[in-house]
Nucleic acid binder design. Sequence first.
DNA 1: GTTTAATAAGACTAATTTAGTCCTATTTCA
DNA 2: TGAAATAGGACTAAATTAGTCTTATTAAAC
Lengths: 135, 135
Amino acid sequence: MLKLSKKTEYALMAVKFIAKKTDGNSVTAKEISDGYNIPYDLLSKVLQQLTKKKVIKSFQGIKGGYSLSKDPNSVTLIDIIRAVEPNYQITECIKDGSTEKDCTHFNCCMIRDPLAKVQKEIDKLFRSLTIHQIL
Amino acid sequence: MLKLSKKTEYALMAVKFIAKKTDGNSVTAKEISDGYNIPYDLLSKVLQQLTKKKVIKSFQGIKGGYSLSKDPNSVTLIDIIRAVEPNYQITECIKDGSTEKDCTHFNCCMIRDPLAKVQKEIDKLFRSLTIHQIL
DNA sequence: GTTTAATAAGACTAATTTAGTCCTATTTCA
DNA sequence: TGAAATAGGACTAAATTAGTCTTATTAAAC
Ligand code: SF4
Ligand code: SF4
């Protein structure tokens, strides 16, 4: 519990790898996969998700690959986590419009609001850490 | 991912329930279990773990139950989480003395130290939140 | 134009973790 | 001594995560 999934770790490793390549060329999924012993298929999906969320940009075709699409100072940990983990909140019920269908304890729960505050603090922390700072 | 387990939620609910009982009597596991529709056996184990870590104290026998053992201002979120989740860290490798046996990427990993810093910040946040503040 | 090597994406399976159950022992009050 | 509570271990079920397989699409190079 409270663990980051492998997808998040792979995303961070990939972003760091791409960020370190400064010669202007893009990086292929295979290069990253080989370099870090990350399963190729899994990594591919992570890279695709990062692309969708514009953290990186992709180039298709035989000379394709990935490169950063933003300044490393303007991408934060929360951007990466949200890209690969659509529901990263600490409780099931925190998303807007959640009802008793999301949790059997919804109606009797007295810790929902307090935990929502904790979530806000975690968000704040993750939003304050840029990939330039942490990688 | 990054989700608190039910054990942590049950622990928080239980501590809040116990804290609200101000008449001096202790609270039984059954009362909490009935009040919040928490599986009795599971809750019992959570209460036992909280007792072991001295967050609450227990009284055995037919008039037994649980009560807080400390001032709510001196117990923090991290105490509760650590009581019920011995390994709550965001990555597998963060504990002291971890080696390549803990993670296949241990040797090539470039994000371990950065993530250790993130963990420290999370610890700091959880240590700063007392149960009096959040419950 | 065909081949080749890359990204894109969905379905599926395996492995691991979490949640919940069951059962027995021990404690203590009436 | 019986009743009702905590203590704790073993086990099962459910859910999530991790990994695999397969096919389609794209674009450079020949
Ligand atoms: S127990 Fe409370 S805080 Fe946890 S998911 Fe249910 S409603 Fe939300
Ligand atoms: S990938 Fe790196 S950070 Fe993650 S568990 Fe392995 S060694 Fe630790």
